[in-house]
């Protein structure tokens, strides 16, 4: 009987686990719908330069009238400068998604590292790290983000930094709790009894077990980050360049122009609905993932 090499065995096991996970995930309709929506939106965002002309975002080149209601030429009407709202919504997706993803990746990376370290190396390291984490957790993050954004250069980079630096505590807490649970399991003790050192235990046992939770957390956090970005942009802390709109800055314009009073619903609805759909899609995916991984989280 030809038996495969250990490495092949390990990969085969991982592949089977992934396939099983996917099957579980696919059983949940909400997760699939969420995933589908995300794929479509990401594709649209990526293909925006191909499908449309970025030139049309230029305020000086706008062809429409001020805040016109929808027509065949401008399917979603125009903004105060006469640009197509549909175009703006499409291009805003790029900024909003980018900020959401990058900020979340930063916060999750920081949070995971700190969480694992705090749980693994108990006593002083843990106490110190958790004090810092708890402090940042308690600090109202919007307030801190406002503070950061107000003193640094306004723009996308600052917003990413602000969100990244204020969201990591939640991830750290989660990862720490999960790591503590895992490290209490007997197979960790067995690993140490076999002679495993810190690096071995963390890389071979802790990380693979924590990874699913981190992944779920990331998915849920991206939605959160996108909402945060929109809030910060709405408050005026976003990128002032009209060539780089985001959904939040669109809403800010709408508000400054009293679109709600003027009844310019086409100006008001699309960005908000876009945010709602994207965040909801991420959340649905995240919750579906959660229920896929949960039985195994309990077992493992």
């Amino acid at each position: 009987m030809t038996t495969p090499s250990p490495r092949a065995l390990a990969w085969r096991r991982r592949g089977a686990a992934f396939a099983a996970g996917w099957r579980e995930f696919a059983k949940q309709r909400t997760g699939l719908v969420g995933l589908g929506v995300l794929v479509v939106i990401v594709l649209l965002a990526l293909l925006a330069p191909v499908l449309t002309d970025q030139e049309n975002l230029d305020v000086t080149k706008a062809t429409g009238g001020r805040m016109e209601s929808p027509s065949w030429e401008f399917l979603l009407g125009t903004d105060r400068a006469g640009r197509s709202v549909l175009l703006l919504t499409l291009w805003s997706a790029r900024i909003s998604l980018t900020v959401g993803l990058v900020a979340t990746l930063i916060s999750v990376a920081i949070g995971t590292v700190i969480g694992i370290l705090a749980a693994h190396f108990g006593r002083w390291v843990s106490a110190g790290l958790m004090r810092v984490t708890d402090f940042f957790l308690v600090l109202p993050s919007l307030v801190l983000a406002i503070a950061l954004s107000s003193v640094l250069e306004r723009g996308v980079g600052t917003i990413i930094l602000a969100i990244g630096l204020t969201s990591w505590p939640a991830a750290a807490r989660l990862v720490r709790a999960q790591t503590l649970t895992i490290e209490a399991r007997p197979y960790i003790e067995r690993s140490k009894a076999l002679g495993g050192g810190h690096f071995h235990v963390i890389s071979k046992h802790v990380l693979p077990a924590v990874a699913p939770l981190v992944f779920v957390n990331t998915t849920l956090a991206v939605g959160s980050a996108i909402v945060s970005e929109s809030t910060l942009s709405f408050l005026g802390l976003g990128d002032p360049d009209p060539m780089r709109p985001s959904w939040g800055s669109m809403l800010r314009s709408a508000w400054l122009d009293s679109a709600m009073i003027a009844g310019a619903w086409w100006y008001l609805l699309p960005p908000g609905i876009a945010i709602g759909i994207v965040v909801l899609a991420f959340t649905m995916c995240g919750r579906a993932l959660e229920s896929v991984l949960n039985p195994r989280l309990r077992e493992g």
Partner: peptide, 16 residues
């Protein structure tokens, strides 16, 4: 609980 549920028997024994 003494065995990592994600590792195969081979990997569990080979760990040491």
């Amino acid at each position: 609980s003494a065995l990592n549920p994600r590792h195969s028997v081979y990997e569990a024994i080979a760990e040491g």
